[in-house]
Design a protein around this nucleic acid. Structure first.
Length: 798
RNA sequence: GCCUCGGUGGCGGAAUUGGUAUACGCGCACGACUCAAAAUCGUGUAUCGCAAGGUGUGAGGGUUCGACCCCCUCCCGAGGCACCA
C-alpha cells in the first residue's frame, strides 16, 4: 500500500501538541455554554488495550468532539476500576505486590489510552484504588450503616468456590454459575454485610419511566426487580399458629383448597410435635435442601411434596378445614414462603392437586365451564362459588375479599438485598470495628481512609485475608482500645463503580465526596456508553446508590444517567468472540501501526450503528477506510479555482447528514455520506473553501489527519476548536429532482422535474415520457403525487 | 413458557420512518497502467430471462393508490427472566 501520509508521525506530533495546549481539558464549568457529561465505563487496568477498549472509547469520542465543535462544554472523563481479582491473582501466582502491579498497569494503560488520541478530560480522572477515592467509598458506607441502609445480616448466601468468596445474587448466572469464574455456586448460611437495595425496589422500577433508556434495558431491570402486586392473607393452623401467605389473586380465595409451605418455612420445624408423619416430612426437607444446592434447573419440574398429617388449616373466607402440605415448588426466599393453593386457577397448583388428588373448586366463571376441568383457568372474570361475592368482577373482588378477611394489599419482589462483603484482599476494607462485646461501630471520618493493610498473606483459603494482618489489629486497638477488633472483609468491586461518575467531576475535593455545586454543574450524565453485561448489575447498583445518597442529602439528582446506550461486541474475523485460544484476536496496536489511529477508529464506527449489534472484524474493511483517508488527503491535488455547483450542493447535504447522524449515533451512515462526497469531489474538483469545510466535518472522525492537513493549509489554531459547519438550505436544495412513477402501484419508470413542480406538471411529464407511454393507455382515475418522492397514476383497468 | 430486540445481496450494512429496496464499504469479475506483480484507477455486480418482461426484504394472510416499514398468524436467531404464588 502506497501511503500518502505517515500516520505514526502525524499522531506523535499532535499528541504532544494537544497535551501541551490542554485542549481536551474540561476545566471549570463555563456557564455561557451548555454542559454535556459523556461517560464511558471505566476500564480495569489489565495492562493492555484490546480492540474492545477502542470500540468503547474511540467511537464515543466522535460524539464528544462533535459536541465541542458545536459549542458545548463537554466533560469526558476516564479513570480506572482497579480493585479486583486479577491483581490478587497476579500477586498469588507471581509473588508481586498487588498495589505496585496495579499502579504500573495504570501508568502503562494511561499512555496507551492517550495514544488513541481521544479527547479525554484527563483533569477529571480518578481510580477506585486511590485512597483519596476509597476514603469516600468508606465514608458513604458508614453513612449507610448509620442510616440502616447497610446492615449485618445472616442468611443464605451464594458462595463461589472458584473465587473463594461470597457473591451477590446479580453475579450468579442463570445456570447457577459464577459470573466471573464460571464455577457452580453453593448456598451457604453465614453472616453478611448487606445493602438494603430492596427498600428502593419501587423507586427503582417507577423511576425507569423518567429515563430515556432503551426499552429492553428498562424491561430487564423491571424483571430483575420482579415486583408483583398482591395481598397478604392470614390462615389459622389447627395448632393455633397463623400462617401468612402472599397471593396475587386474593379474588380466588374461595377456591383455596389447601395450603403449601416451603420446606424451609419456620412453622414446619416449629410444629414438629403435631406432625404425625414427621419422618417423611424431615426426609423431604433434607432432600429439597440438596436439590437446591445442585441443579435446580431440572427441566422435568414434576411437582413433589408431603402432606403434613396431623395439621390442618382454615380457609378464612369459607371457614372450611383444608389440608397443609410442604412442597419445594414454594420457595422460602420469595413472598412469605407460604401459599394458598387455588388449583382451579393456578397451573402449578393444578398440577400438584392432580398428583395429590386435592379438591379443585372453580371460583371464576370461565369459558371451559366448571364441570370438566382439564387445566387451570388463570384469567380474570366473574366470580362463582364465592358466597356474597358471586357475580362480582375479579378485579373488584380482590380488594373486597382482602377487606373481608382482614388481609393487606402489598407488593413483593424478586430482588434480594445486595451482599457486598468479600473474603478477599484487593478491595476496599469495610470500615467497621467491633467493640469487645462484638458490637459493630463505623470507623469515624477522621480515621478514613481506613487503609488496606499490606502485611497480608492473600492466598485464598476461604477465610478473609485481612484476618491475618497484625498491622490492622494493632491499628484498631491503638485507636479504639484493647479488645476492639477490625472487620476483615473487603467490599464487592461493584461498590467502587457505583459512584465514580460523582467523583470524576469533583476529584480534587478533600471536604466532600462530590459537592452540590459540581453535581449541579455537571450531572446527570447525559449519555452513558457501555456494555450489555451491566444491565442488571452495575446499572441497577449505581441507580440505587444515587437514590440512597439523595435520601441522605448527599446527592442532588434522583437518577445518575439520563440516557444509556449499550454497544455490541467486536468479534474475530471468523465471527466468533475473540479469544487467545481461538487465535482470532485483533491487536489494536498492530492495526494502528498498519493504518493509523484514525482509520482504526473510523473503521469501528463504520461497521454499523453503535447500538446493540456485534460485528465481525473485516481486514478488508479497515483497508477500505484507510483508502478513503488517502483520498481525502489526495483531494488537495484536485483543487479548482471555481466552485462546482454540484459539489457545493453535495457538501451542504453532507453537512446535514453528518450532523444528524452523529446525534443519533449512526456514525456508519455519516461516514458513508462523506465517502459519497469525496467520490464526487474527486471527479468534479473542489475549491479550497469547500475542502476546508469538509475537513471540519471529518475532524471528529479523523482527528489526527484533519489536524495535520489543517495546519498544512496554513492554519495556526486547532481544527478541533473551530465551529462545526452548518448546512445552508439554500445551497443544499436541488433545483431538479428525479422521482419514480408508479402505474397502479408498480414502478414503471422515472421523470425529472424542476423542484417544487405541481401535480399537473408531474402528470404531464409522465404522459410525455415514451418510457411510460405504453402503460398509460386507459383513463387516469386517480393521481397520487408526493412532491419530490413519487407519482402514482391509477389507470382504469380493462 | 413469559419479556425485549432482530431476520434485507457472497459479507458489514443503507432505505429521508408508508413513497424509485439493496446507498456506502468489503469481496468478486473484467479492463487500464506494468516485462510481471503489488498498489492505484475505470467498469460491472439481487435474481430468473437472449430479450420484452417477471420475481424479490424469514413464511403466509391483511390494510393501502403504494408495505422492509402498519395489523394478524406462524417460523428462525440473539439477549433477559423463569416452579416468583
Amino acid at each position: 500500500m502506497i501511503k500518502k501520509f505517515d500516520s505514526a508521525e502525524i499522531e506523535k506530533k499532535w499528541h504532544a501538541i494537544w497535551k501541551e495546549s490542554g485542549i481536551h481539558t474540561a476545566g471549570k464549568r463555563d456557564e455561557s455554554k451548555e454542559k454535556r457529561y459523556i461517560l464511558v465505563e471505566w476500564p480495569y487496568p489489565s495492562g493492555n488495550l484490546h480492540i474492545g477498549h477502542w470500540y468503547a472509547f474511540a467511537v464515543p469520542d466522535i460524539y464528544v468532539r462533535y459536541l465541542r465543535m458545536t459549542g458545548k462544554q463537554v466533560v469526558f472523563p476516564m479513570g480506572f476500576d482497579a480493585f479486583g481479582l486479577p491483581a490478587e491473582n497476579a500477586a498469588i501466582k507471581r509473588g508481586l505486590d498487588p498495589k505496585a502491579w496495579t499502579n504500573d498497569n495504570i501508568t502503562y494503560m494511561q499512555n496507551q489510552l492517550e495514544s488513541m488520541g481521544n479527547a479525554f478530560s484527563w483533569d477529571k480522572t480518578t481510580s477506585s484504588t486511590d485512597p483519596e477515592y476509597y476514603k469516600w467509598t468508606q465514608w458513604m458506607f458508614t453513612k449507610f450503616f448509620e442510616n440502616d441502609i447497610a446492615y449485618r445480616g445472616t442468611g443464605v448466601v451464594n458462595w463461589c468456590p472458584g473465587c473463594n468468596t461470597v457473591i451477590a445474587n446479580e453475579q450468579v448466572l442463570a445456570d447457577g454459575t459464577c459470573e466471573r469464574s464460571g464455577d457452580l455456586i453453593e448456598k451457604r448460611e453465614m453472616p453478611q454485610w448487606m445493602l438494603r437495595i430492596t427498600k428502593y425496589a419501587d423507586r427503582l422500577i417507577d423511576d425507569l419511566d423518567t429515563l430515556a433508556w432503551p426499552e429492553h434495558i428498562k424491561e430487564a431491570q423491571r424483571q430483575w426487580i420482579g415486583r408483583s402486586k398482591g395481598a397478604l392473607l392470614d390462615f389459622t393452623l389447627s395448632t393455633g399458629d397463623s400462617v401468612t401467605v402472599f397471593t396475587t389473586r386474593p379474588d380466588t380465595l374461595y377456591g383455596a383448597t389447601y395450603l403449601v409451605l416451603a420446606p424451609e418455612h419456620p412453622l414446619v420445624e416449629a410444629n414438629k410435635a403435631s406432625i404425625t408423619n414427621w419422618g417423611d416430612v424431615a426426609g423431604y426437607i433434607v432432600a429439597s435442601k440438596q436439590k437446591a444446592e445442585q441443579d435446580r434447573l431440572d427441566a422435568t419440574k414434576e411437582k413433589t411434596g408431603v402432606k403434613l398429617e396431623g395439621i390442618t388449616a382454615v380457609n378464612p373466607a369459607t371457614g372450611e378445614t383444608i389440608p397443609v402440605y410442604i412442597a419445594d415448588y414454594v420457595l422460602g426466599s420469595y413472598g412469605t414462603g407460604a401459599i394458598m393453593a387455588v388449583p382451579a386457577h393456578d397451573e402449578r397448583d393444578f398440577a400438584f392437586a392432580q398428583k395429590f388428588s386435592c379438591l379443585i373448586v372453580n371460583v371464576i366463571d370461565s369459558s371451559h365451564g366448571s364441570e370438566n376441568i382439564t387445566g387451570a383457568y388463570v384469567g380474570g372474570g366473574t366470580l362463582i362459588n364465592s358466597g356474597e361475592f358471586d357475580r362480582m368482577d375479579s378485579e373488584e373482588a380482590k380488594i373486597k375479599i382482602v377487606e373481608k378477611v382482614g388481609g393487606k394489599m402489598t407488593s413483593t419482589y424478586r430482588l434480594r438485598d445486595w451482599s457486598i462483603g468479600r473474603q478477599r484482599y484487593w478491595g476496599v476494607p469495610i470500615p467497621i470495628v467491633y467493640d469487645p462485646s462484638g458490637k459493630a461501630h463505623p470507623v469515624p471520618k477522621e480515621h478514613l481512609p481506613w487503609l488496606l493493610p499490606e502485611d497480608v498473606d492473600f492466598r485464598p483459603t476461604g477465610e478473609a485475608p485481612l484476618a491475618k494482618s497484625a498491622e490492622l489489629k494493632k491499628r484498631t486497638e491503638a485507636i479504639f482500645g484493647a479488645g476492639w477488633t477490625p472487620e476483615v472483609e473487603t467490599m464487592d468491586t461493584f461498590v467502587d463503580s457505583s459512584w465514580y461518575y460523582l467523583r470524576y467531576i469533583d476529584n480534587q475535593n478533600d471536604e466532600e465526596l462530590s459537592s452540590a455545586k459540581a453535581q449541579n454543574d455537571w450531572l446527570p450524565v447525559d449519555i452513558y456508553f457501555g456494555g450489555a453485561e451491566h444491565t442488571t448489575m452495575h446499572l441497577l447498583y449505581s441507580r440505587f446508590w444515587q437514590k440512597a445518597l439523595l435520601d441522605l442529602g448527599l446527592a442532588v439528582h434522583s437518577e445518575p444517567y439520563k440516557r444509556r446506550l449499550n454497544r455490541g461486541l467486536i468479534l474475530g474475523p471468523d465471527g466468533n468472540k475473540m479469544s487467545k485460544s481461538k487465535g482470532n484476536v485483533i491487536d489494536p496496536d498492530e492495526q494502528v501501526r498498519f493504518v493509523g489511529a484514525d482509520a482504526v477508529k473510523m473503521y469501528l464506527a463504520f461497521m454499523g450503528p453503535y447500538e446493540g449489534n456485534n460485528y465481525p472484524w473485516d481486514p478488508g474493511g479497515i483497508a477500505g477506510v484507510r483508502r478513503f483517508l488517502e483520498r481525502v488527503y489526495g483531494l488537495t491535488e484536485h483543487f479548482t479555482e471555481v466552485e462546482a455547483e454540484a459539489v457545493t450542493r453535495q457538501l451542504h447535504k453532507t453537512i446535514e447528514k453528518v450532523a444528524s447522524d452523529i446525534q443519533e449515533f449512526k456514525f456508519n451512515t455519516a461516514i458513508s455520506a462523506m465517502m459519497i462526497f469525496v467520490n464526487l469531489a474527486e471527479k468534479e474538483g473542489i475549491s479550497q473553501a469547500n475542502y476546508t469545510t469538509f475537513l471540519k466535518l471529518l475532524a471528529p472522525f479523523a482527528p489526527h489527519l484533519t489536524e495535520e492537513i489543517w495546519s498544512q493549509l496554513g492554519h495556526t489554531d486547532s481544527i478541533h476548536i473551530t465551529q462545526f459547519p452548518e448546512a445552508d438550505e439554500a445551497l443544499s436544495a436541488d433545483n431538479e429532482v428525479t422521482i419514480g412513477v408508479q402505474i397502479n402501484g408498480k414502478v414503471r419508470g422515472n421523470i425529472t422535474l424542476s423542484a417544487g413542480a405541481t401535480e399537473q406538471e408531474a402528470t404531464l411529464e409522465a404522459r410525455c415520457s415514451p418510457q411510460l407511454a405504453k402503460y398509460i393507455s386507459g383513463e387516469i382515475v386517480k393521481v397520487i403525487y408526493v412532491e419530490g418522492r413519487i407519482l402514482n397514476l391509477v389507470i382504469k383497468g380493462d
